[in-house]
């Protein structure tokens, strides 16, 4: 007997009549380039490390995509990175700290703004004092850069980048399968499909969360705790939302520069999972929410069907 109403069954995959509840966030984008793709990815990977959840990490961040030399500001291989925070101050603090520790330090890396907006946060303007008075400001063609002499040569960083207050954090899919192999295969297929959508990141490891959470917990001070309703080993011991054929659940969390981007990514994910089917992947797709009273963005799965 289904625990949640069914919206549809596509290629044998059941889709809940449910919705993902998401929240407004401030989002920004930067471009990291380096002498080759290896070092651009090295810098970007370091910078977006420990940026899975804004509650514990201060921000959520990830690599949106790899850029070809033709797409970057300085004609070198690069990476586009997105960061999200609750407010502009918190976002700036996280981005500049990570910039100073992970990009400034990375051989051959340079950093540029990659989001045009009236509202901005500091990049190079915040870390220029590392150069101890030898920093050089350069403004030309409407752009402002800081040049910082370093032992390797010179670190080049744009002064500021734009941010949007219309970002969305917490779009999600719950991927339910007979076993962990099927859940992982379906989740990986969904993440790959979502990567093709511009303006979104999936900030957890490989884009996938195995420990989805609910708000609060039985212990004092816990802001989040295990989502027992979706834990297969607790079926029977808790108010489970899992059917008998579900043996493993994974979640994909999606942050986007716009609600439309999150919506498009969720739709791409659903299509990839249903294309894969229940034999190799998942047999059910759901979404996480808090009853609809907390987040203003509601992404209904039935509106995102392929």
């Amino acid at each position: 007997m289904p625990v949640i109403e069914l919206a549809a069954t596509i290629n044998g995959v059941r889709i809940d009549d449910d919705f993902a509840e998401a929240f407004p966030m401030c989002g920004t984008a930067i471009q990291i380039t380096a002498i080759n793709e290896k070092w651009a990815l090295e810098a970007a990977t370091k910078m977006t490390g420990f940026a899975t959840s804004v509650i514990a990490c201060g921000c959520e961040g990830g690599i949106e995509r790899v850029l070809s030399p033709e797409e970057t500001r300085d004609g070198r291989p690069g990476v586009r990175v997105l960061f999200f925070g609750f407010d502009p101050g918190g976002l700036e603090s996280q981005v500049t700290t990570r910039l100073g520790q992970c990009i400034l330090t990375c051989p051959t890396a340079a950093c540029y703004a990659d989001y045009e907006a009236e509202t901005t946060i500091d990049l190079g303007s915040a870390i220029r004092y590392f150069a101890d008075g030898f920093q050089v400001s350069k403004k030309f063609a409407g752009k402002h850069f800081w040049r910082m002499p370093v032992m390797e040569g010179e670190f080049l960083c744009e002064a500021k980048t734009g941010y949007t207050a219309d970002g969305v954090g917490g779009g999600n899919l719950l991927i339910m399968a007979r076993d962990v192999r099927g859940a992982l295969a379906a989740s990986e297929a969904a993440v790959e499909a979502m990567k093709a959508v511009p303006g979104v990141i999936m900030p957890f490891p490989g884009g996938i969360v195995r420990s989805g959470s609910k708000v609060g917990g039985k212990y004092k001070g816990m802001m989040a705790s295990t989502n027992d309703a979706y834990c297969p080993t607790l079926r029977g011991a808790t108010d489970s939302k899992l059917d008998d054929d579900i043996g493993s659940v994974l979640e994909i969390v999606i942050d986007g520069m716009t609600a439309d981007a999150v919506s498009a990514a969720m739709a791409a994910g659903i299509k990839a999972i249903t294309d894969l089917g229940p034999d190799q992947g998942a047999c059910r797709i759901g979404a996480g929410n808090y009853g609809g009273g907390l987040g203003p963005h509601h992404f209904k799965l039935k509106d995102l069907l392929p």
Partner: peptide
């Protein structure tokens, strides 16, 4: 002698103008 990114960016930026 130095090969600096800023020189390339300046050349590209001014060339656009």
């Amino acid at each position: 002698v130095h090969d600096l990114l800023i020189l390339k960016l300046m050349a590209d930026g001014l060339r656009e103008t």
